[in-house]
Design a protein around this nucleic acid. Sequence first.
DNA 1: CAGTGATACATGCAAATGCATCTATTTTGG
DNA 2: CCAAAATAGATGCATTTGCATGTATCACTG
Lengths: 154, 154
Amino acid sequence: MTTTAPGSSGVRLAAETWESLFRSQVAVMRRLQAGQAFKKLPIKEYDVLFTLSRCPTGKLRLNEINDHVLLSQSSLSRLVERLEKRGLVERSTAPDDGRGILLGLTPAGQELQKEIGREHVRDIAELVAPALTADEQRELLRLTQKLQAFVASK
Amino acid sequence: MTTTAPGSSGVRLAAETWESLFRSQVAVMRRLQAGQAFKKLPIKEYDVLFTLSRCPTGKLRLNEINDHVLLSQSSLSRLVERLEKRGLVERSTAPDDGRGILLGLTPAGQELQKEIGREHVRDIAELVAPALTADEQRELLRLTQKLQAFVASK
DNA sequence: CAGTGATACATGCAAATGCATCTATTTTGG
DNA sequence: CCAAAATAGATGCATTTGCATGTATCACTG
């Protein structure tokens, strides 16, 4: 068994852990956002293109995307509206649910996603790879996946 | 030495690690934001009160706070304006730098921070503590601190 | 299968945010 | 010591965001 410091019952550790996870995310995100890549498209909009590009079928429901992103439903609706106006995504009605909207990348959207993605991945690698060993990165990956899985299942 | 998978030279691992860190942060933040505690004060505004409460001197410069938070300088300036209007913080001119502003909590601000903080810490513990063992939390804490330190030093 | 509630997304509107710029102060270099 | 550049923070203004609500479709229940 793992003992905790007397009187804190693990609450303090959890709080410190979250605080550190959050601040590290802020620090990294700040740098990434400043990258040249996001002069072309805000990072939140890029994230939607990226999410679509990762999806096997190439199309996702708006509410599925919403789970991935820290935006209200209405903000995502408008963000997608902007992407559509720029010709980067296409809405289509979901075949099995008349209420739903399926979102997919246009060829221009795919192109822009790849273009920004290349730069973005370089920036990430420059920031993360020298900070942690490969083993540490794998462990961080595992722990954050585990945390995410627990939160999603709750 | 730790070898990387052929052809990916660590770039892929770094990207996956960041992606997972980011998504886990989104998932946890989404839950925390929805907590009862943040009906009283938006989480971003609470974060400023919290940051001030942690500071030994009790006062911080606006630009120091800005480093901690994912907001532009002007947005922070206005956020602080709102906190001031609600009587939660006080601006004072920095003694050693006529351009600077020192920000401190008022008694009401301290009170509200503690009140929200208690609830918030409970929510964090409910979300994080059951997801990871204490050892895993300590390791996640260590890795995110290391990442943050590297980014800050760059 | 009608009626009630839930879900998916859109929209009006007020508030928050960021960019560009402004003022004031400090720092630097000659 | 002075002029030029840098830094801290505030502010005008356009864009983005979220809350509340609206509309349409789906699911459940008796």
